[in-house]
Measured scan of single mutants.
Amino acid sequence: PQEEYKKRAKKALKKGDEDTAREALKRAGLSPDQAEEFIRRFL
């Protein structure tokens, strides 16, 4: 589910792994723009 992928993305970002985070967010159904926004907000 979407929440699970978002959790995964946050874990990846904590490790500084933005590529894995983007992949997880893409799987969560976010557009690339939404994924970038999510990452920017998190960092």
Score class of each variant (00 low, 15 high):
34 Q>G: 05
3 E>G: 08
1 P>Y: 14
2 Q>Y: 12
12 A>C: 07
42 F>W: 11
25 L>S: 00
6 K>H: 07
29 G>Q: 04
24 A>Y: 15
36 E>K: 05
43 L>P: 05
6 K>I: 15
42 F>V: 08
38 F>C: 07
3 E>Q: 08
8 R>I: 15
9 A>Y: 02
17 D>Q: 07
22 R>S: 02
20 T>G: 14
12 A>Q: 03
6 K>E: 12
28 A>V: 04
40 R>Y: 10
30 L>R: 00
3 E>N: 10
1 P>E: 14
1 P>W: 15
41 R>W: 12
17 D>S: 04
4 E>P: 06
6 K>V: 15
39 I>C: 04
34 Q>T: 05
14 K>M: 15
7 K>W: 10
17 D>I: 03
30 L>H: 03
33 D>F: 09
13 L>C: 04
3 E>W: 12
18 E>V: 15
32 P>S: 11
21 A>K: 01
15 K>N: 14
14 K>G: 09
28 A>L: 06
43 L>S: 09
42 F>E: 07
2 Q>H: 10
8 R>G: 05
43 L>V: 08
13 L>G: 01
16 G>H: 05
25 L>F: 02
42 F>P: 01
37 E>H: 07
13 L>K: 01
11 K>T: 12
36 E>N: 09
33 D>P: 07
15 K>D: 15
38 F>E: 03
15 K>Q: 14
6 K>S: 06
10 K>P: 02
22 R>D: 01
16 G>F: 04
17 D>W: 04
33 D>G: 09
8 R>W: 12
40 R>T: 08
30 L>S: 01
12 A>H: 05
15 K>V: 13
41 R>L: 12
43 L>E: 07
25 L>W: 00
41 R>Y: 11
39 I>M: 05
39 I>F: 03
19 D>N: 12
29 G>M: 03
40 R>I: 08
32 P>N: 11
14 K>L: 15
1 P>V: 14
8 R>F: 13
25 L>C: 01
5 Y>C: 08
10 K>S: 08
40 R>A: 10
10 K>A: 13
37 E>M: 07
16 G>S: 03
14 K>W: 12
23 E>L: 07
9 A>F: 03
13 L>D: 00
18 E>R: 11
26 K>G: 08
31 S>D: 08
2 Q>L: 12
15 K>P: 01
32 P>F: 10
8 R>Q: 15
28 A>D: 01
28 A>N: 02
41 R>H: 13
19 D>T: 12
41 R>V: 11
23 E>H: 06
34 Q>A: 10
22 R>Y: 05
24 A>C: 08
2 Q>K: 11
41 R>E: 13
15 K>H: 13
27 R>E: 12
26 K>Y: 12
39 I>E: 00
25 L>T: 00
15 K>W: 08
35 A>M: 11
9 A>H: 02
9 A>D: 01
7 K>C: 03
7 K>V: 09
35 A>P: 00
6 K>D: 04
19 D>W: 10
10 K>I: 15
32 P>I: 11
24 A>D: 10
7 K>D: 13
17 D>R: 06
26 K>A: 14
13 L>F: 02
5 Y>L: 12
2 Q>G: 09
24 A>N: 13
23 E>V: 08
31 S>N: 09
32 P>M: 09
39 I>V: 06
30 L>K: 01
43 L>C: 10
17 D>A: 05
24 A>V: 14
5 Y>W: 15
10 K>F: 13
12 A>N: 03
24 A>F: 15
34 Q>Y: 05
17 D>G: 03
21 A>G: 03
14 K>C: 12
19 D>P: 11
9 A>G: 02
4 E>K: 11
5 Y>R: 03
32 P>A: 12
12 A>Y: 07
36 E>Q: 07
42 F>Q: 05
24 A>W: 15
18 E>C: 06
11 K>Q: 14
19 D>G: 10
38 F>D: 01
27 R>N: 12
10 K>V: 15
38 F>M: 04
35 A>Q: 08
26 K>W: 09
27 R>I: 09
33 D>R: 09
25 L>N: 00
16 G>Q: 04
5 Y>K: 03
30 L>A: 02
24 A>G: 03
24 A>M: 15
14 K>I: 13
18 E>W: 15
28 A>H: 03
41 R>I: 11
12 A>D: 03
8 R>H: 10
16 G>N: 05
3 E>Y: 09
4 E>N: 11
5 Y>G: 06
41 R>G: 08
23 E>G: 05
31 S>C: 05
3 E>H: 10
22 R>V: 04
37 E>I: 07
33 D>T: 10
4 E>W: 14
34 Q>P: 00
13 L>T: 01
10 K>W: 14
35 A>L: 09
27 R>Q: 14
13 L>Q: 01
12 A>L: 07
39 I>L: 04
42 F>C: 02
29 G>S: 03
29 G>K: 03
2 Q>W: 12
4 E>D: 12
12 A>E: 03
43 L>A: 09
37 E>K: 07
12 A>P: 02
40 R>M: 08
39 I>K: 01
8 R>T: 12
33 D>L: 11
37 E>D: 10
35 A>F: 04
15 K>A: 14
43 L>W: 11
35 A>E: 06
11 K>F: 08
27 R>W: 10
7 K>E: 15
32 P>D: 12
1 P>Q: 14
43 L>Q: 11
13 L>S: 01
41 R>N: 13
2 Q>N: 10
8 R>L: 15
28 A>C: 04
37 E>Y: 06
23 E>N: 07
7 K>M: 11
34 Q>M: 07
23 E>P: 00
35 A>D: 01
26 K>R: 13
22 R>Q: 04
41 R>S: 12
33 D>A: 13
11 K>D: 15
35 A>Y: 03
36 E>F: 05
38 F>R: 01
24 A>I: 15
5 Y>E: 10
36 E>G: 04
1 P>R: 14
39 I>N: 00
19 D>F: 11
8 R>K: 14
37 E>T: 06
4 E>V: 10
13 L>A: 03
6 K>Y: 15
39 I>T: 02
21 A>E: 00
16 G>K: 05
27 R>V: 08
